[in-house]
Every structure is written in structure tokens, then in C-alpha cells.
């Protein structure tokens, strides 16, 4: 599903964000990515989303070799993934329903598909009663569930979340993680960046730790570590 082969990323400013990453993530996995602030976690995700391009090495995402990907093919790569943002990135002037439908309209879905799919996905994240509300009328946890619904609505095979619970009360963070594991149970690969050590421990999944641009531990390689 995702493969990094000796990937380096140096920003134009000279910042060496990634210094040789080798990693493989299989289809259907649930992976936590942890590390201190500035370690290179977001850069790692941005390379997968093709928001940034590796300086050297190769990134492969669901059969797309990203170094060879043409600019106009990027949209089709992105359609294979759902992205969840720390700041939710909802459109304030649109209802919950329209925020989620927006992602479908953008890829040219029909009105019928939208009417069938959006309520279903909003049901999945437990927001069936809030379809007509505007983002400002929701709690942080609910807003992020809208973000999650939007990421899910086009049925991607990969979900990428960069600190999805960073702006949410801790007690509600657990619910978001639960939802993500539920999504993973249905077969979607899930990649979550988080600071929250407690949360990571309680879920007992594969954990990749990045420190100063390098992978310093990967629980998959040492599966029986305590």
C-alpha cells in the first residue's frame, strides 16, 4: 500500500526534515506515527499525499510511484485517500450535509449518489441528527467527525489523519480514535499522527516513532516489546 525507500526530504530553506526513511505499510493496517514536534511526521504524511516531493528516494502509494507522478495525475492519487486535518477545515457557510457532499461534488458525483451516500456516512460517524447544522453550532469533537465523514465519503482505501485530536478535548479524542479503528475494521488502511501517548497505548496498534527525520522504532519489527 505504502512504501518508502531511503526517502530524504530537505526543504528549500535547508531544513532536513527526513533523513532516510525505509518503511512499508500493508493494506488494511492501522498505524500510529508518533514523535516530538518538528520530528518530521507531517512531512512524512505530506510526501504520501504528494503535497511535497521527496528530495531523493522513492515513495510508492497504492501503485503510484510518486517520483514519476505527473502533476495532472495528483487528483487521482488523492481520490484514493481521505485526509483528516487537525483544524477540521470545514466550510463555515455550508451545512454539515453540504460540507460532506462537497467532497463528492468535487469528484463529479451525481445528485442521486450524494443523496444516498452522505446520510449513510454521517450515520457512521454518529451525526445523523446534525445534517442541517452549521459547523459553528457543533462541538470540536463533532466538527472533527464531520471532517472524518468527508474523508470517508468517497470510499478511499487509505485514511490519513495528522493530529486529528489535537484540537479536541481528551475525553472526546477517544471517540474519534474508536471511529478510526471502526473504519479500519471495515478494511480501510489508517495512518494517524498523534502526540497522545496514552491514547496510542490503549489501542495497541503498530507504532512508528520518528525522531529528527529518522524512524527510531517500529513496533511491527519488535512486536513483543512489553
Amino acid at each position: 500500500m505504502i512504501e518508502f525507500r531511503d526517502v530524504h526530504k530537505t526543504y528549500e530553506t535547508g531544513n532536513e526534515a527526513l533523513k532516510g526513511i525505509d518503511i512499508k505499510i500493508e493494506e488494511g493496517e492501522f498505524v500510529f506515527i508518533v514523535g516530538a514536534s518538528g520530528a518530521g511526521k507531517s512531512t512524512f504524511l505530506k510526501l504520501i499525499m504528494r503535497e511535497e516531493v521527496a528530495t531523493s528516494g522513492e515513495v510508492v502509494v497504492s501503485n503510484f510511484k510518486l517520483s514519476k507522478l505527473k502533476k495532472r495525475q495528483i487528483p487521482y492519487l488523492r481520490r484514493a485517500m481521505g485526509i483528516v486535518f487537525q483544524d477540521f477545515r470545514l466550510i463555515d457557510t455550508m451545512t454539515v450535509f453540504d460540507n460532506v457532499a462537497f467532497a463528492m461534488r468535487v469528484v463529479g458525483a451525481s445528485q442521486r449518489e450524494i443523496r444516498r451516500r452522505v446520510p449513510y456516512v454521517l450515520g457512521l460517524v454518529g451525526l445523523q441528527g446534525k445534517t442541517k447544522n452549521f459547523p459553528a453550532e457543533l462541538s470540536g469533537g463533532e466538527q472533527q467527525r464531520v471532517g472524518l465523514a468527508r474523508a470517508l465519503v468517497n470510499n478511499p482505501s487509505l485514511i490519513i489523519a495528522d493530529e486529528p485530536t489535537g484540537n479536541i478535548d481528551p475525553e472526546l479524542s477517544y471517540e474519534i480514535m474508536e471511529l478510526l479503528t471502526e473504519i479500519n475494521r471495515r478494511g480501510t488502511t489508517v495512518l494517524v499522527v498523534t502526540h497522545d501517548q496514552e491514547l496510542v497505548k490503549s489501542f495497541g496498534r503498530r507504532v512508528i516513532e520518528i525522531r529528527q527525520g529518522l524512524v527510531v522504532s517500529d513496533s511491527k519489527e519488535v512486536p513483543h516489546e512489553i
Partner: peptide, 16 residues
């Protein structure tokens, strides 16, 4: 710009 970034993240084509 928020809409644009959302559009791009969900795979909108350039012309879209």
C-alpha cells in the same frame, strides 16, 4: 483558500 485546499485534498482536478 480553505475551499481550494479542501478541493485539492479530496482530488479536484485543476480545471475544477
Amino acid at each position: 483558500r480553505r475551499e481550494i485546499s479542501i478541493m485539492r485534498s479530496v482530488g479536484a482536478t485543476q480545471w475544477f
